[in-house]
């Protein structure tokens, strides 16, 4: 039997290396696509269910593509669940709160990263605690605090904590800011300080203009966390006008009752339609900003 030998120019090492890297890239595409499918699956599922006609929905054999499809559900559920007013509420309460949070948290993050002071260690421990302790643990007493402050059932249950940097996941946002400013060179700021610029002026004229990257990251996160926040809203808003996330959380029960009442067994399809609308809005925003956002994640440099 003739022994197979490799040509002289390509030695064994190179072949081994090439096949190794080829194997890795095959594994990469396979693995990423498989998990990617799992990520996309619920989205397709929601969309497919929400456009199926009633017969198709009840037909077990029709899993993905409907034979007869309908777009009416989106409009119907928009009106049944009163999405319009809820959307306005979300914009005027939660998105405003997100903007406040993004602005106010930067001060604490900047202070913790740039300056040395007596209570710094203590405040760092507090920050970790704020990250860790879930709001569920103290929500009842928090609502009592809101009552005592006279802001219960007003938009200020979002505005006021955001103003003080302890809004929705404020700990996480301050943490990201702190990590960013710790990595930012401080020579420029020191020069400005020596030249007589006050700390606030230094912050606004020098630090802030160079933190566009982190502000974009934090804005996206804060927006999405506020958009999905229904815990505080359920707890503190007694009157009818609730934001979208609250409406969504209560929707399955509401639609189930309504479905039984109206004789519509396909009520989950309405829930799916509502989900599609609810998800579409941040998705459109994401599509616009994703390139910048994905890049900015690279440059923030969160190290922990």
């Amino acid at each position: 039997m003739k022994k197979f030998t490799l040509p002289k120019k390509i030695d064994k090492h190179t072949v081994k290396k090439a096949s190794y890297s080829f194997g890795i890239s095959v594994f990469r595409y396979l693995f990423l696509s498989l998990v990617g499918f799992v990520i996309l699956y619920p989205l397709f599922y929601m969309i497919s269910n929400s456009i199926k006609s009633q017969d198709d929905f009840l037909n077990i054999a029709r899993i993905w593509l409907p034979a007869y499809w309908t777009m009416d559900r989106f409009k119907e559920v928009w009106e049944i669940a009163q999405f319009g007013p809820a959307f306005v509420k979300t914009l005027s309460i939660q998105i405003v709160s997100a903007a406040i949070e993004v602005f106010m948290c930067s001060f604490a993050g900047y202070g913790l990263a740039r300056y040395n002071f007596k209570l710094k260690k203590f405040e760092s421990v507090l920050l970790i605690l704020l990250l860790l302790v879930p709001i569920q643990m103290y929500s009842l007493s928090l609502s009592v605090t809101y009552r005592n402050l006279g802001i219960f059932d007003t938009p200020f249950v979002y505005y006021l904590p955001s103003l003080f940097g302890v809004g929705v996941r404020g700990g996480m946002i301050i943490f990201i800011y702190r990590q960013f400013y710790e990595g930012l060179p401080k020579e420029l700021e020191e020069a400005a300080f020596v030249d007589g610029a006050g700390p606030l002026k230094t912050y606004f004229k020098i630090a802030l203009p160079s933190s566009g990257v982190v502000i974009l990251t934090v804005s996206v996160l804060s927006f999405i966390w506020h958009w999905n926040e229904n815990y505080i809203a359920d707890l503190c808003f007694m009157s009818d006008g609730r934001p979208l996330a609250s409406v969504m959380a209560a929707l399955p029960t509401y639609l189930q009752m309504l479905g039984m009442f109206l004789g519509k067994p396909e009520y989950p399809a309405y829930v799916c339609a509502a989900c599609v609308i609810y998800v579409a809005i941040p998705l459109v925003l994401y599509a616009i900003f994703q390139r910048k956002f994905v890049r900015s994640i690279d440059r923030v440099g969160i190290t922990g």
Binding site: C105, F107, A108, G111, Y115, K120, E123, L126, G165, P199
Partner: peptide
């Protein structure tokens, strides 16, 4: 100054 930056949050 550092303390003042973090005071509102505190």
């Amino acid at each position: 100054y550092g303390f003042l930056f973090t005071l509102p949050w505190l």
